[in-house]
């Protein structure tokens, strides 16, 4: 998998990415995903990353983009059935 923009988060990111990929291929795609067992690992990774995003002012840019993206959310999260 890919590196993190914050090298200090690489290790925890790799653990999370591996967990996610296993969950995605073995559970999610088979429609058997009830809980996300990778969440504790994600929380660790998020904690590491959010500090860097905050220090570099990237979190503000992400916030604006998230607002801009509302239309996509509305379009792609609606039920297709």
């Amino acid at each position: 998998m890919s590196a993190s923009l914050a090298p200090e988060c690489n290790q925890v990111k790799e653990r999370y990415d591996n967990c996610f990929l296993k969950w995605y291929s073995e559970k999610f795609l088979r429609g058997a995903a009830t809980t996300d067992e990778c969440d504790p690992l994600f929380k660790q990774y998020e904690k590491c990353l959010s500090k860097v995003l905050n220090d570099r002012g990237i979190d503000k840019m992400v916030k604006e983009a998230r607002e801009d993206n509302r239309e996509n959310d509305a379009e792609h999260l609606k039920p297709k059935r």
């Binding site: 998998m1 890919s2 990111k13 990415d17 998230r66």
Partner: peptide, 24 residues
Amino acid sequence: HVIAVDTLSRTVDPSTGILRTERL
């Protein structure tokens, strides 16, 4: 040219089952 890919959030929408991921 892609030097890093970070996941910002990930959720499964409870009503549709759609996996939504935000990445940087």
